[in-house]
Each structure stands twice: as structure tokens, then as C-alpha cells.
Design a protein around this nucleic acid. Structure first.
Length: 455
DNA sequence: ACCCGATGTC
């Protein structure tokens, strides 16, 4: 090894760095960087670009930026590498700003650049998602024939809720490949257009295009949203016929069966999965919790911990706490919550606090709800206040109910639900003046508006 | 030589 590393060529170092980037092998990559400096290759643009890519993929975005800024010359690839780097580090805005900076140079973006910057903007819900202006660049540069660019644009439109624009672009694209179909199907699913997702799947089959494992995982999640077990089972047959079994597909199958009410079939899919991961096991626990088989959820979790050496994550504890909440197991819920911190070294995020608050609230222990809200390092969310408000309705707590309703109204002034629940609480206690106040407030604000009209 | 697209759990 040392002989090989004495006089490596630029070509060797470049490929080695690229491998380190792909495998996220930081330790080896920094040694190559050191070797590169020793060998006097610091000004090699290809190597510097590979370094940018390597550091970014290892989540050392600061180092990636430093290397990029120190470069004397750039080409399309080096610009694109840092854009991809920002994107991989969830810095979509910075990726977009870098793209704009690139437009000011004499280097023109190519389809790699455009795919990458569009992809970086997927899920960016900032002030305005720039998909339209990127789309303009795509058209100007004539990249609207590239399936890579089109599929990332479809995804970008769909991910920021502009499903109509996604459909428009999808429909006007002539040579649609499987990935574009998959992207559109997944876009429909993300936006809750589950029926349209199924329709497009049927269209795809009618055109004799072969579905992939990606197609079926989206379609299965559409089936689980629609709770259509019959269609879901047909897709399951297809999965077996085509041999699509992987963790994603099996995860979607488990979810489809448990949401469709056939928890035992979900378990049978899980048992047939050879490489089980925390996600699949969490789906299963959540499945038991949501169909009211809380004891089985907890037994299964305890079995996995002791016998299968499961390393639970935050989501897994949400599933366990949901099981406790649905069954009213207060002591067990507190025990799991504490064990999460002490035995598993996880600091609870707002979702687990939400589960525990919901557990207390459903059981009418509103004192503990208040204490936990004081203690937790998060601002109470809409979900938390909603679960408190429904508890106040059941247990007749006017004071806390009023506070919860006011918080909810502040967050979503045009949503009628909190006004109605508060009115219900007032009516139960015979507080007629308060009742008419909240009623007229609701009429002023909610009347004739949809729940989302303030957006 | 270096950079690009989609999928699953709360």
C-alpha cells in the first residue's frame, strides 16, 4: 500500500476520491487529500472537484466550500458538484444561490447542473419555490428533452404542492420513461391524490411499461391510504410474480395490510422479510397500536429489544407510546419514555412528548399535561393543543380548554373545529355569554371561507 | 478523469 501511495497519478487519486465519496469513507479520503498536497496536485481542477464532492458527501460542507472557493478555475462539473453538495446537506437555498452565481459567469449550466439545482429545490417551502424560474432555464437551454431534468422538475412541482403544474409538464412530455411515470405516481401520492396514482399505474400497465419496485411501493402506499385491500392484494401478487421484494416494498406492504385492517397478513409479510430493519419493525408496532392490539405491540417491542437486539429510534418510541396511549397504560408509557432517555440515550423530540401528552390527556390527567408542557423544550404544536382541547371537552376543564382553543385559533384562525369544541365546553358548563361570544367570533372569521383560505 | 433523476415508518 505505501509503495502504491508514494507516486500515485492524478488519475488514480481522482478515482480513489470518487470511491471515498460514494462509500462516505472520510478517513481514507482525507489521507488522499494529504497525499494530493504532498504530490503537488493542489491546482488540478479534476482533483479539486472530486474533493468538493468527497467532502460534501461526507457532510463536511464547510470543507467542500473552502476547496471550491480556493479553486482558480471552474467548469460545469465543479459548479455542479458544490450544488449537489449543498443539496445533499439539505441546503437547498444555498444550492439555488450558487446556481444564480454560476449564471453570472461564462460557464453555462448543462443538464447535470439543472437536474441538480432542481433536485436541491425539492421540498424547499421557502418564500417561493423557484421551480418555475428553473423551468424557464430548462426550456431556454433546450434541456426539456432530457428525462433526468423532466423527472426532477415533475418531482419539484409536486413536492411544493403544485400538482397541476406537475401534471401539465408530465402530459406535454412525449417520450416518457418509467422513472417519469414513477415520479408522477409518487407526486400524486405525496399530494393525497391516491386515485390518480392508481389510474396512472393502470395507464402505465396498458402501455406495456414494466413497473419497478419504486412503482409498486408508491402504489401500495396509495392503496393503504385508500384502504383498498383488494387492489393492494393484487399488487402484492404482482410483487411476488416480479420478484420485487426489498425493504421498501415490504415496508409498503406491511403498512398497506395494517392500515387495511389485516394486521396478521402484515405480520406474515414481516416474518417473510429476511433483512428486517428498524423501519419495518416500527411499522409493525404501529400497526398493532393502531388496530387496538396494544398489548401485542408492546410484547413485540420487548421481544425485539431482548431477543433481536433491536436498536430503537425516535419513531419506534412514538409507535410504542401510541400503543400505551390507545390502551391507557399510563405507567408503562412513562416507563418507556424514561427508558428511551436512560437506556437508549435518545433525547425525546416533540413527537414523543406529543404521544405522552396525548396519553395523559386521554386519561384526564390534565395536571400532568401542564407539568410536561412546562418541562419540554418545545413550543406546543397544533396537534398537542388539539389533543388537550379534546380532553378538556371530555373532562370539562374550562380554563385549560379556553387556552388550548385560543392557541389553536391563533394558529389557524379559519379552522372551525376549535371554536366548535370550545362552544361545546361552554354549553356543558352553562356559560351562555361565553358561548355566544365564541359563536359570533367563529361566524366573523370562518364564514364563507375554507379552512385554508388565509394561505 | 470529476457532477445528475424516483421509493418506505411517526
Amino acid at each position: 500500500m505505501s509503495r502504491l501511495m508514494e507516486k500515485p497519478t492524478e488519475y488514480v487519486l481522482c478515482n480513489a476520491l470518487s470511491s471515498c465519496a460514494k462509500t462516505m469513507n472520510w478517513h481514507f479520503g482525507v489521507q488522499i487529500h494529504a497525499n494530493m498536497i504532498r504530490s503537488g496536485y493542489e491546482n488540478n481542477m479534476f482533483l479539486s472537484t472530486a474533493l468538493v464532492d468527497f467532502y460534501a458527501k461526507c457532510f463536511c460542507i464547510v470543507d467542500a466550500k473552502k476547496i471550491f472557493r480556493a479553486m482558480k478555475v471552474h467548469d460545469q462539473v465543479s459548479w455542479t458538484s458544490l450544488i449537489v453538495g449543498f443539496s445533499a446537506n439539505k441546503l437547498g437555498r444555498e444550492a439555488f444561490l450558487l446556481f444564480k452565481e454560476m449564471l453570472g459567469t461564462r460557464i453555462r449550466p448543462d443538464c447535470f447542473t439543472l437536474t441538480s439545482v432542481v433536485n436541491a429545490c425539492v421540498g424547499e417551502n421557502g418564500v417561493v419555490n423557484p421551480c418555475s424560474s428553473l423551468h424557464v432555464h430548462v426550456i431556454i437551454r433546450g434541456f426539456d428533452t432530457s428525462n433526468f431534468v423532466i423527472s426532477s422538475l415533475v418531482d419539484c412541482y409536486a413536492s411544493c404542492g403544485r400538482i397541476d403544474d406537475a401534471v401539465l409538464l408530465f402530459n406535454e412530455t412525449n417520450e416518457k420513461d418509467t422513472v417519469i411515470y414513477n415520479t408522477m405516481i409518487s407526486g400524486y401520492c405525496q399530494n393525497m391524490y391516491s386515485e390518480d396514482a392508481l389510474k396512472l399505474f393502470v395507464e402505465m400497465r396498458g402501455k406495456n411499461m414494466s413497473p419497478t419496485d419504486h412503482t409498486v411501493s408508491s402504489i401500495l402506499s396509495a392503496c393503504s391510504r385508500l384502504a383498498v385491500l383488494v387492489e393492494g392484494k393484487q399488487v402484492h401478487s404482482l410483487v411476488i410474480k416480479m420478484g420485487f421484494e426489498n425493504v421498501f416494498v415490504n415496508g409498503a406492504l406491511i403498512d398497506m395490510y395494517s392500515k387495511g385492517g389485516d394486521i396478521d397478513e402484515a405480520r406474515s409479510v414481516l416474518d417473510q422479510t429476511s433483512r428486517k430493519n428498524t423501519v419495518l419493525l416500527t411499522s409493525m408496532i404501529m400497526g398493532y397500536a393502531q388496530c387496538g392490539r396494544s398489548l401485542e405491540a408492546l410484547e413485540f417491542f420487548d421481544y425485539l429489544l431482548t431477543e433481536q437486539k433491536l436498536i430503537p429510534d425516535h419513531v419506534c418510541f412514538s409507535a410504542v407510546l401510541t400503543a400505551c396511549s390507545h390502551a391507557g397504560f399510563i405507567d408503562k408509557g412513562e416507563e418507556y419514555f424514561n427508558k428511551m432517555i436512560t437506556d437508549h440515550g435518545l433525547s425525546p423530540d416533540i413527537d414523543q412528548y406529543t404521544c405522552l401528552i396525548d396519553l395523559y390527556a386521554r386519561n384526564g390527567d390534565l395536571r400532568k399535561v401542564r407539568d410536561l408542557m412546562e418541562e419540554m423544550p418545545y413550543d406546543p404544536s397544533f396537534i398537542i393543543w388539539s389533543s388537550i382541547l379534546s380532553a378538556c371537552k371530555i373532562y370539562g376543564d374550562v380554563e385549560l380548554g379556553r387556552e388550548a382553543a385560543n392557541q389553536l385559533i391563533k394558529m389557524e384562525p379559519c379552522n372551525a373545529a376549535p371554536y366548535l369544541t370550545l362552544a361545546h365546553i361552554y354549553a356543558r358548563q352553562g356559560l351562555w355569554n361565553e358561548l355566544s361570544e365564541v359563536r359570533s367570533l367563529m361566524q366573523q372569521r370562518v364564514k364563507g371561507k375554507s379552512a385554508w383560505s388565509w394561505v
